[in-house]
Design a protein around this nucleic acid. Structure first.
Length: 501
RNA sequence: GCCACCGUCGUCUAAGGGCCAGGACACCGGAUUUUCGUUCCGGUUGAUGGGGGUUCGAAUCCCUCCGGUGGUGCCA
């Protein structure tokens, strides 16, 4: 494993760059592309940036990188923003809130990119390339098959001058990458990373339609938005040298960089939505919302992925803010672990107050066919009985449904437990409950225990049949609490129905 | 192919030259319990990718091989 930040640069070979002067407060950003949904890995990137901003009193900027016009949609922007809000990752500048460095959509900043690109061209640091895609492809195809993969743009227009420009013909703008030397930077997570310029081709910074490509748009924005620390997935490590070259060409201070290892599928694949579906992992953040995760639970799981603080596993949002640091980020890619994710979710549910838990479960009740009012007096006591046995709110709602809706007996359970002897006991129990004065968990328990003692019956004999009769299933919260929440009328009716059937 | 990065229990991680490689999830066993779950206890159940070095001593430093990931686009 490489030494993290602090590894030495080789001053002789690296082209040095300006270090961001220690400014007052960090400015970080999250810059998603609106091409679908908020990816769980993207949420993690956003979270780490947000944590750093909140911890340091810095600024968290949200920017929408919508320059891929083929795939970007407004609907997607809304979905991403909604997921960010649901997670509680509020941004200080960006869509909806504005800010002094807007607009925060790249397609509304085209003039800015053009101006910067033109300046680079004027200064000889970039150049117009009139070679068409077809032309370049033809050159590539001329190579022997084995060498085609290694084809790089052959500097066709690198040394041409304005006199060579073709009037009215489309062109792209390419960056004039230094032919020799190397660019090295010290990543806050990965340590020193060095890339020889020879391995960087003269990459396109502006398309023929005037729209910038990722590397250029991101740099111009990060410069003009005064971003001091760029934190993103390690898939961008490869882009960093190009971007540093761009900062230097623009005469701008180079920000700090922090890359995060990738979150892979359980089988170690790239975590795309399709792969996630195949391997049982929810990739879009909206799915977690729909399945009844609490935001802090999701944040906890993804924070703890690639980062740690001693042996602690469960963190509140505030603890995350207090304890987060780039130095405790690891470098190895990791695999999503669904079981652990669910465990973390459940731990967060357990830590909710009963009232809070009930209020959060309520919206999910409708999803499982329960239509009660938010002020239904059974809601809180019912919710309380399933809180510690559910991993997500949707699971809790499902586990609670029997309290409110008519039940159907699980056939296998009925077959096994609703024997003639058991039915006789259920009738007797119904009788008993009818007369219990203190119809509470404790009161019912006392009455039933006394009744059992009187008849020399073991609770094990009557519990399961009663459970099946009352809930339809063999697994449920404690029998007495179930009865108490159900209420005398319903409990008695269900016992008799099962006994009579 | 080339470039960059990464490699500790099945999984997430700790230890960054020196006490049995620690914790968590998972898994197995047990206790408690009216079921499930919770909770508690136990686990020689389980790992430094392989091989070379350096060193009294290596998961840790060096070399090499292997493996994985990302990139190699007028995607981001």
């Amino acid at each position: 494993m490489p030494r993290r930040a602090g590894a030495l640069l080789d001053p002789a070979s690296a082209s040095r760059y300006l270090t961001t002067p220690l400014m007052d407060k960090p400015r970080v950003r999250f810059a998603p592309s609106p091409t679908g949904y908020l990816h769980i890995g993207g949420a993690r990137t956003a979270l780490f940036n947000w944590l750093w901003a909140r911890k340091t009193g810095g600024t968290f900027v949200l920017r929408i990188e919508d320059t891929d016009q083929e795939r970007s949609t407004d609907a997607s922007t809304r979905v991403i923003l909604d997921s960010m809000r649901w997670l509680g990752l509020d941004w200080d500048e960006g869509p909806g809130v504005g800010g002094p460095h807007g607009p925060y959509f790249q397609m509304q900043r085209l003039d800015l990119y053009a101006a910067h690109a033109d300046r680079l061209v004027a200064e000889g640091k970039a150049y117009r390339c009139y070679a068409t895609r077809e032309e370049i492809d033809a050159l590539r195809m001329k190579l022997p098959e084995k060498k085609r993969d290694g084809f790089v743009y052959p500097h066709l227009w690198r040394d041409k001058t304005e006199a060579d420009w073709i009037p009215n013909a489309p062109y792209v703008i390419r960056f004039k990458t230094p032919l020799a030397g190397a660019t090295e930077f010290v990543d806050k997570v990965f340590g020193a990373i060095k890339t020889p310029h020879a391995s960087i081709e003269d990459f396109v910074i502006i398309r023929s339609d005037g729209v910038p490509l990722y590397n250029f748009g991101a740099v111009v924005d990060d410069v003009t938005m005064n971003i001091t620390l760029v934190a993103r997935g390690s898939d961008h490590i490869i882009n960093t040298p190009k971007q540093i070259l761009l900062y230097q060409a623009l005469g701008a201070a180079v920000p700090e960089f922090a890359h995060l290892p990738m979150m892979q599928s359980p089988a170690g694949r790239k975590l795309s939505k399709r792969v996630g579906d195949e391997q049982g992992v929810d990739v879009p953040v909206e799915k977690y919302q729909q399945n009844g995760w609490v935001p802090d639970g999701l944040l906890n799981y993804i924070a703890r992925f690639g980062w740690s603080a001693g042996d602690q596993e469960i963190f509140s949002r505030d603890e995350l803010v207090a304890k987060f640091d780039w130095a405790n980020c690891g470098t190895g890619d990791g695999r999503y672990d669904k079981k652990k994710a669910l465990w973390v979710s459940g731990e967060h549910l357990k830590r909710l107050t009963d009232e809070d838990f009930a209020a959060r479960v309520y919206p999910f009740l409708a999803r499982v066919g329960v239509t009660i009012g938010a002020d239904d007096p059974r809601l809180l006591p019912a919710a309380r009985t399933v809180k510690t046995r559910s991993a997500r709110l949707l699971d809790a709602a499902e586990a609670m449904a029997f309290y409110f809706n008519d039940i159907t007996l699980d056939p296998a359970a009925a077959e096994k437990f609703l024997t003639d002897d058991a039915k006789a006991n259920l009738r007797a129990m119904a009788e008993l409950l009818d007369g219990v004065a203190d119809f509470t968990d404790a009161g019912i328990g006392a009455a039933v225990e006394a009744w059992l003692a009187e008849r020399a019956l073991d609770i094990k004999i009557v519990a399961q049949p009663a459970r099946v009769a009352l809930t339809g299933r063999t697994a449920s919260p404690g029998l007495y609490e179930v009865i108490a929440v159900l209420g005398r009328e319903v409990a008695v009716r269900r016992l008799r129905a099962a006994a009579g059937a």
